[in-house]
Design a protein around this nucleic acid. Sequence first.
DNA 1: TCATTAAAGTTAT
DNA 2: ATAACTTTAATGA
Length: 198
Amino acid sequence: MVISEKILYSMGADVKQYDPTEIIFSEGDSPSFYYQIITGEVKLNNYNEDGKETIQNLLTDGESIGESLLFMDKPYPINAVTTTSCNILKLPKNLFMDLLKQYPDTCFDMNTHLSQNLYYKQLMAQTMSSQNPAVKLKTLMDYLKSFHNEDKPFSFKIPLTRQQMASLTGLCVETVIRSLKKMERDNMVQIENRKILY
DNA sequence: TCATTAAAGTTAT
DNA sequence: ATAACTTTAATGA
């Protein structure tokens, strides 16, 4: 996790329970809390003019939500929405700042986490501007798998729906499906009753 | 080649 | 039951 829950509690953080599909914050809101997921999954997204969703990132246990905005004076450029039931720690911004000053190690961990995010963004930005759908999907799956310990082929079950993969890569679902099948033929992935093994 | 549309089957809530 | 997801096929940019 990004910051020790004990420390967060000691600084006055509260747990808030969310139902699936609840909005944590919306595009345009002013950031005033540090959020850290205890359990559950949250997506960061945008909608374009046609209403098509782009998922910026999917966050799970131990990850912080929209933390980079706490270091700037800008409104959120994205929405944060739960995709499952969640327990999320909330700490007011001013207390979060106190926490960082009081616990230098935590400050370091925060840098690590922000760097990790930046790395992902750069990796994705570069790849997603490329044309080949299979390459986009491979980059996404490599990233997801990098968090998993196992490195063997087909040892990792992609925890995403095809719909989500499409929203993350900017492809349409049908293209995701077709590309995955091609990748299956090329022995890059295995598909077992709709589950993708990579 | 990929997006879009439509239609139908499948899974999850 | 109903909504959400998956799949196939046809068409157009």
